[in-house]
């Protein structure tokens, strides 16, 4: 479209967007700077806006060693977060894709009821049933286990709905061609449905990995042993109520380490991420 472009109208969008980017990035930049100074500079409030010289020291201390308050090193926490996020993402995808397949491609008694049973769980976020769920996990002896961390978060109506939606777009003729070609239901699933779902699975994986990695309330409740802590919980525990004792430089290094994996996932798999985000909300 022909539009008179003035100097102002050309640069205004860029100006606003750059301001937006700066506002969005600023807290993270400050955290990064914080992770590169020594405790003293931070504590007396004279930390400048550029990185200091303690970067390597702070990160290696945070990752490998404990510190004055006998804290767990961050390395194992990263591993715990990673394991939990992977179990949640893979588990969710696995159970959702087969249940969606059952609901879409079979006719059987109680099919609608099963679907509704799953569907209604959309309305029961973990926060509203937190203590009873805690009690069940405790009764099952799953406190302080990876299973306890992940399994209660695995059942998800969202993922099932997403797969159902996707299966609905697979043309009926493919099932029919496959029946004529002599493939049964499981063969059709493995040979055709699964390969066609790859992008959807990948998109969902990205979203669910981030979801799992960022869990807070649930792991806070059910992990008591230090060696089962996830990094998101760990960083919270570094903030000592008496501010003087908080080792902010280590807390910030840990924060940066905790943000890195999910942020990298978003940046490197941006297409899948956007797709997953938009589709899980349909």
């Amino acid at each position: 479209m022909v539009e008179r472009r003035t100097w102002f109208s050309t640069f205004l969008p860029h100006f606003i967007l750059i301001m937006g980017v700066l506002i969005v990035a600023f807290p993270v930049y400050v955290a990064f700077v914080g992770s590169s100074w020594d405790a003293g500079t931070i504590a007396n409030g004279t930390m400048p806006l550029y990185p200091g010289k303690f970067l390597v020291e702070n990160y290696s201390r945070a990752l490998l060693a404990g510190n004055a308050t006998a804290r767990e090193p961050v390395g194992p926490m990263l591993l715990n977060s990673f394991i939990m996020a992977i179990i949640i993402a893979v588990g969710k995808i696995a159970i959702s894709i087969i249940s969606a397949y059952a609901v879409v491609y079979f006719r059987f008694p109680l099919r609608q009821s099963a679907f509704w049973l799953i569907f209604i769980t959309l309305m029961l976020p973990v926060e509203v049933r937190i203590y009873p769920t805690y009690k069940i996990v405790a009764d099952l002896g799953m406190l302080d286990t990876y299973a306890g961390l992940a399994v209660p978060l695995i059942a998800s109506a969202t993922a099932t709905l997403l797969f159902r939606q996707f299966f609905m777009t697979i043309p009926d003729e493919l099932v029919e061609a496959s029946k004529i070609d002599g493939a049964g239901p499981m063969k059709f699933f493995v040979d055709t449905v699964l390969p066609l779902s790859i992008t959807t699975i990948a998109a969902l994986f990205v979203i669910q990995f981030i979801y799992g990695w960022n869990q807070y309330l649930w792991p806070l409740l059910i992990t008591t042993r230090e060696n089962m802590q996830t990094i998101v919980i760990g960083i919270k525990k570094m903030l000592v109520t008496q501010d003087a004792l908080t080792e902010w430089q280590l807390a910030m290094a840990t924060a940066v380490l905790a943000m890195l994996p999910p942020v990298l996932v978003v940046l490197l798999m941006q297409k899948l991420f956007v797709r997953g985000l938009v589709e899980t909300e349909k």
């Binding site: 029946k179 004529i180 040979d191």
Partner: peptide, 20 residues
Amino acid sequence: IEPAERDIAMVFQNYALYPH
């Protein structure tokens, strides 16, 4: 008898080729 055992072959309107 199931479609696979009827010894027939079918050409669909949208071809129904396996895209992958």
